[in-house]
């Protein structure tokens, strides 16, 4: 299980990468893709949609199950990764390269409240 140190995480298995300009890249963790198994369908939110923190925003379907991914913090969707829609398996191949959407956070400080790598690892181990 890979948990890069430089990213932030949620208890619902999203990762967040904050760019210098404040934009957030959001994806699902390696642990999440492993739990789901081979992904075959991804539905992303519309660009411009305003998301509340923890709002279901992405549908992920694997051969065995369907799951949602949630907005890690409140914000507006500024871009989505169409490559993931075209080839959902790229999330299985590299969950941290295959970002799902970009979010402009309503409050940049919200990101600091997310889990760091050690806290996310602890959260998984406790499950």
């Amino acid at each position: 299980m890979i948990i890069p140190n430089e990213l932030k995480y949620t208890r619902t298995h999203e990762w967040v990468r904050a760019e210098a300009n404040g934009a957030l890249y959001v994806g699902i963790t390696d642990h999440a893709q492993e739990l789901l198994g081979d992904l075959v369908f991804v539905e992303l939110p519309e660009v411009g949609r305003t998301l509340a923190a923890e709002e279901a925003s992405v549908v992920l379907e694997s051969v065995k199950a369907a799951a949602d991914a949630y907005a890690p913090v409140a914000g507006v969707v500024t871009a989505v990764n169409e490559a993931v829609v075209a080839a959902p398996e790229c999330v299985n191949q590299d969950a941290y390269a295959a970002w799902l959407f970009q979010l402009e956070p309503a409050n940049a400080a919200d990101v600091d409240k997310l889990l760091d790598a050690a806290a996310y690892k602890a959260a998984i181990d406790a499950q």
């Binding site: 492993e34 198994g37 081979d38 051969v63 065995k64 398996e89 299985n92």
Partner: peptide, 19 residues
């Protein structure tokens, strides 16, 4: 990856189900 299948602990996959 092991799962509960009708009371039995069974392998659901060894990596990739599609593979």
């Amino acid at each position: 990856r092991m799962v509960d299948f009708g009371g039995w602990e069974m392998p659901v996959n060894y990596g990739s189900q599609i593979g």
